[in-house]
Nucleic acid binder design. Structure first.
Lengths: 168, 168
DNA sequence: CGGAACGTTCAGTTCGGATTGAATGAATAC
DNA sequence: GTATTCATTCAATCCGAACTGAACGTTCCG
């Protein structure tokens, strides 16, 4: 005899947080489901299985799978092994600070160093543009100035962000 | 005798920055055009008209219009009036710091205070859930703890962000 | 051996938001 | 007044990413 099990419905509080987390998620350009899954788990007293997530959120198991894997990549949720059970149980990382740290280290920081390299490359491209006569001297100086401004800001951001994280 | 004018093609440098800015824009969940327009203007020695933007970026004038208005709402670009010309001329805000300030004040800060209110509301909803018997005491305490954690982090973020901005 | 219970992957569909062309409005020139 | 030249708005279209169902691989159990 198998499932068909309709799990206990979610409390109003959890439903509202799920909705808010979903909106926040797509506000920053991520799929809504990601936020919903995290919201669900963050207010869940016990770790949940893929099937439970899929059922409670009314999304396909495929979505639940991809969503949870993305969240795990950010260390926002983790797997919990219950002895004698083959299912994966998932729970939210309780320390929100850790999640922020993870997002920074795994996502932001690499992006920032890449950006630095890209700006330097643009400065070289600019020299090429001048030598090839694609731009006159006035435009050269103007662009160079702006690119240096970008470089300057980029460096400061790279220094301030890890510092700011400390203060959370 | 009207346009059909094909403007001077963009230098490689500007093309690359436009592309990068576009990607950055949609990375944070905004339309690519927004970033492209700003990238174009930021490396433009002179202010450009809507038609020029539309032509150089190969997008419709409608897109250029909505895009520039969004950027103006963030104070990332501004209008420049040339006497004797009815067209709007647009130029990028040169101070990148100002743009960050604008994004924070006009966009992030309101969102943060709203979030604070929303968390407080969730705490009330949680009390309601308990009184209505929707959740047992264990779940109540668990959820309450997590919501307080959120509230705590939210407060710190609200304090750290303006501080971090100072250091740029 | 099956076979059941998992999680994952992949091709197809769906859906939301960006983009567009055409209509509209506003301002100027004649 | 009418005609032009702008920017904006709106409905319709388009596009890409999120989501889905089905097929798959794997592991465990009998």
């Amino acid at each position: 005899m198998t499932s068909g099990s309709v799990a206990k419905p979610l409390s109003k509080t959890r439903l509202e947080l799920i909705e808010a987390a979903g909106r926040l998620s797509q506000l920053v350009g991520r799929p809504r489901t990601i936020g919903q899954i995290f919201g669900l788990l963050y207010l869940s007293p016990r770790a949940l299985t893929l099937d439970e997530i899929s059922e409670l959120l009314e999304i396909s198991k495929a979505s639940a799978s991809t969503g949870t894997r993305q969240l795990m990549a950010l260390h926002a949720i983790r797997q919990v092994w219950k002895p004698g059970d083959r299912k994966d149980f998932l729970e939210a990382e309780p320390e929100l600070r850790e999640i922020i740290r993870g997002v920074y280290q795994l996502f932001l920081a690499p992006k920032l160093t890449k950006t630095r390299g890209r700006i330097d490359l643009l400065l070289e491209t600019l020299d090429g543009d001048r030598k090839s006569g694609a731009i006159d001297d006035e435009e050269y100086r103007f662009c160079r100035d702006r690119l240096l401004q970008m470089s300057n800001l980029q460096g400061k951001v790279e220094k301030v962000l890890p510092l700011a994280e400390k203060f959370l």
